[in-house]
Simulated scan of single mutants.
Amino acid sequence: MTESSAITPEQVEHLASLSRIAMSEDELKSLAGDLSTILGNVARVNEVAGDDVPATSHPIPLTNVMRPDVVGETLSSEQALASAPAAEDDKFLVPQILGEE
């Protein structure tokens, strides 16, 4: 990464102010260096990643392990509402929180 493409503490300060994040001068300098290093590493990867290199999201192939979806025994409305603090019209009754009708 060249010096002209390095992230400056002023740029980090600008982004922090847009994000409404308060940062000290030491944090700004440290983060500017970290971001410059990250951008340099991304630039190096872009140099070697050609059209013959397939895009991957994970270095190890992953498979999703799922069990069969089988209908099992369920609670009746009466059983589900038996321990409810309040119920009305065969439904749970909860306090109104939005002030709407």
Rank of each mutant, 00 (worst) to 15 (best):
M1R: 06
M1P: 03
T2H: 01
E3M: 12
E3F: 12
S4A: 13
A6H: 00
A6C: 03
T8V: 04
E10W: 00
Q11S: 04
V12G: 02
H14Q: 13
L15R: 14
A16E: 02
S19N: 08
R20E: 07
R20Y: 00
R20D: 10
R20C: 06
I21E: 06
I21K: 05
I21F: 04
I21Q: 04
A22G: 02
M23Q: 04
S24R: 14
S24L: 14
S24M: 13
E25D: 15
E25H: 13
D26G: 05
E27L: 06
L28W: 01
L28C: 05
L28M: 06
L28D: 05
K29P: 04
S30H: 07
L31M: 10
L31G: 03
L31E: 05
A32E: 03
A32S: 11
A32C: 06
G33A: 13
G33K: 14
D34P: 01
S36E: 10
S36N: 11
I38P: 03
I38V: 15
L39N: 12
G40K: 07
N41S: 02
N41A: 06
V42A: 13
A43C: 10
R44E: 11
N46Q: 06
N46K: 09
N46I: 05
N46R: 05
N46V: 04
E47A: 09
V48Y: 15
V48W: 14
V48H: 15
V48L: 15
G50E: 07
D51Y: 14
V53P: 01
P54S: 11
A55T: 10
T56W: 02
T56D: 03
H58D: 07
P59N: 02
I60K: 10
I60H: 08
P61R: 08
L62Y: 02
T63R: 03
T63G: 00
V65M: 08
R67M: 13
R67Y: 12
R67E: 15
P68C: 11
D69H: 15
V70M: 01
G72E: 07
E73H: 09
E73R: 10
E73Y: 08
T74R: 15
L75E: 00
S76E: 05
E78M: 08
S83P: 02
S83K: 11
P85R: 04
A86E: 08
A86P: 01
A87M: 00
E88W: 14
E88F: 12
D89E: 04
D89M: 10
D89R: 09
D90K: 07
D90C: 01
F92D: 08
P95K: 14
G99M: 01
G99R: 01
E100I: 13
E101R: 13
